[in-house]
Write a protein that binds this DNA or RNA. Structure first.
Lengths: 112, 112
DNA sequence: ACAAATACTGTATATCGCACAGTATGTCAA
DNA sequence: TTGACATACTGTGCGATATACAGTATTTGT
């Protein structure tokens, strides 16, 4: 294989990770908690990948955050915003369209 | 909306475009022909996006190409290689896994 | 003959996933 | 009680990609 497999996954993660985060944060969660949650549902993200995504999505106005300093060590809870929901649905729409293209092509490959 | 919609599509295209090209090139095609073909099946790619992808995938050994200079103006026909098929299946596998994660999350969003 | 469509190449840029490096608090076994 | 490990985060830098911008050359339609 001329290109490392890891590189492929990086490419495939692009776009998808946003969807995953925006879907998960229907319920408020802090970063580290999400890492565990994502593993639990059968995927995995790098720590170094998730934290920047959270910051970026917040900067875009798609997430809001608040610090919980009352219990244990400080935790930054994130939650999806209304604008975030709109974007999320848009992303899901694009993905669905792509999935349609893929299945159309797969049919041709099998029949052709 | 704080971020232009076009940017979203760029993100979502990442990874997907490779899959689309690798699936389409089960049948040999040249660049311009593919542009039309992709439109026909209900998607669209920029000329400036497709050509670099074709070159890159060939450089990776996932596509092979040959020039047809016999008819009309010169056309560069591309076709998927065996290695390309392996990669394509890997990409499809990752995408399926992602789809699984998404539907799991969607269920929680609806029930939670 | 002139515009538009065809069919490509080459360079530059912004963005993002992730690597690398670092800070600080809490827990638990030896 | 100390020091290893888990928790919980921040900040900087790099490489790869989608796409913009610019350009070349041939063919077709009017």
């Amino acid at each position: 294989m001329s290109i490392k497999d890891s590189k492929i996954e990086v490419e495939m993660n692009r776009g998808f990770l946003q969807i995953m985060v925006l879907l998960a944060l229907e319920t408020p969660m802090y970063g580290y908690m999400m890492l565990r949650f994502i593993e639990k549902i059968g995927y995995s993200v790098e720590e170094n990948t998730l934290y920047p995504i959270l910051r970026r999505l917040e900067k875009n106005g798609w997430l809001s955050s608040r610090w919980d300093v009352e219990h244990d060590r400080p935790k930054k809870y994130y939650e999806i915003t209304e604008e975030g929901k709109i974007i999320r649905n848009k992303l899901l729409g694009i993905r669905q369209k792509q999935t349609g293209v893929i299945s159309k092509l797969m049919k041709e490959v099998n029949n052709g």
